[in-house]
Amino acid sequence: MKHTAYRVFKKPFFGRFMRPWRWPEGIDRQHWQQLSIASGSGAQLAALLAESPVAAARGAVLLAHPMGTAAKGFWLKHGHAELLRQAGYHVMLFDLNGFGESGSTTMDYPLDVLAAGQALQARYPQLPVAVVGASMGAAMSLCALAQADHPFKAAVAEAAFPTLLHFWRRYPLPRLGIQLSKLVYPAGERRLRPVHAATRLVGRPPLLLIYGEDDIYTPVADGRQLQQAFSAATHTEFWQVAGAGHTLAYEAQPQAYAQRVTAFLDQHLGASA
């Protein structure tokens, strides 16, 4: 009954994105292993894992997807997963609950990130683990950093929103739903606010924030708000990407993205190891 109520509540937010998942066209499946992960949200999460072809892996990276029917396939379709594999990182992709191949339960998406991260750490206990997220996945990853038992030694967040209202302010029905949730279940709404997570950060993982100058959904100003919040808690870097739309920094500047993100991970996961 509880999960049914949540599925109804989710409709105005995510209904158009919750579609049957398809493997991205033209992407080789041979390196990817299918996994199922039990989340604290109550969902069984569908995940894919591929190891780096590099002999001595530097670490392992969890990729948390943005909203969209591609779900975890976003990282395959746009090339992020292969970039990280070739840079020496084992990579795990997963569907947040209700997206892709994962069952739909509650709105506790940070618990999905947490469960996937813990599963990745358990797989490679000798390696440091980082999380890379985009939009919704980035915001929920930042919220997961406030969980006491998260495994992440570094985080890269592209196009993360400071609060749910920042992202949904243009959409009347979702905006109303968020405002109601602040009255009916304020603790739950706070757990989905990255700016709130900044005040409760666990372990001080260094953070790279990425924002596109052409992003109309999570503009640079929203990113600066998060930068200010997280800079008070941990080492925080900010990259403003010219010509990049929402979650499209790698597409806009592939060489700069590859250099900036892999250098950040190499530095901070290397220091952690």
Rank of each mutant, 00 (worst) to 15 (best):
P206H: 13
M107G: 02
G133L: 12
V129N: 08
G117W: 11
V156P: 03
E158H: 00
Y211F: 12
D215Y: 06
A87P: 01
E213R: 01
A157S: 08
A116N: 11
R123S: 04
D95H: 08
A122V: 05
T106Q: 07
A148W: 06
I216S: 15
A198L: 13
A122G: 07
C143V: 13
P110T: 08
G100F: 01
S102V: 00
P128K: 00
P151A: 04
P174W: 09
P194S: 10
A81P: 14
P174F: 08
L111T: 14
A81S: 13
R200G: 15
R190N: 12
L192G: 14
V91A: 04
A87M: 08
V132E: 03
P128Q: 05
V91P: 05
H150C: 06
S141T: 05
T199I: 03
E101L: 11
F152D: 04
A155V: 09
R191M: 03
S181L: 06
P162Q: 08
E213F: 01
A198T: 10
L127Y: 02
A119S: 07
V132W: 04
L180R: 14
L208K: 05
G203R: 07
A157K: 02
T106E: 00
A154W: 06
G103I: 00
S102H: 08
V113W: 11
W168H: 01
M107E: 15
A187L: 10
V129E: 07
F94Q: 03
L208Y: 07
L173H: 09
G203C: 07
P186F: 03
A160L: 09
A157T: 00
H196F: 08
M107P: 09
A146I: 04
G100T: 03
A197K: 13
A160K: 13
R193S: 08
R193D: 00
Q121Y: 10
T199K: 09
E189W: 05
S104W: 12
F161P: 01
H150F: 02
K153S: 08
M92A: 05
V184S: 14
P151H: 11
R169G: 01
A139F: 09
P162A: 11
L164D: 15
E158S: 03
P174T: 09
T199S: 02
I210F: 00
Y211M: 10
H150Y: 03
S104L: 12
L164W: 12
R200W: 04
A197T: 14
Q179D: 03
Q147S: 12
L114S: 05
Y171G: 00
G88I: 00
L164F: 11
M92S: 05
I210T: 01
F167D: 04
G188P: 15
A146T: 02
L114E: 08
V156I: 07
L173Q: 11
A159R: 02
Y109T: 12
D108A: 15
R204Q: 15
H166C: 13
L192A: 15
L183D: 13
A138F: 01
T105F: 02
H196D: 04
A134G: 10
V132S: 02
D215T: 09
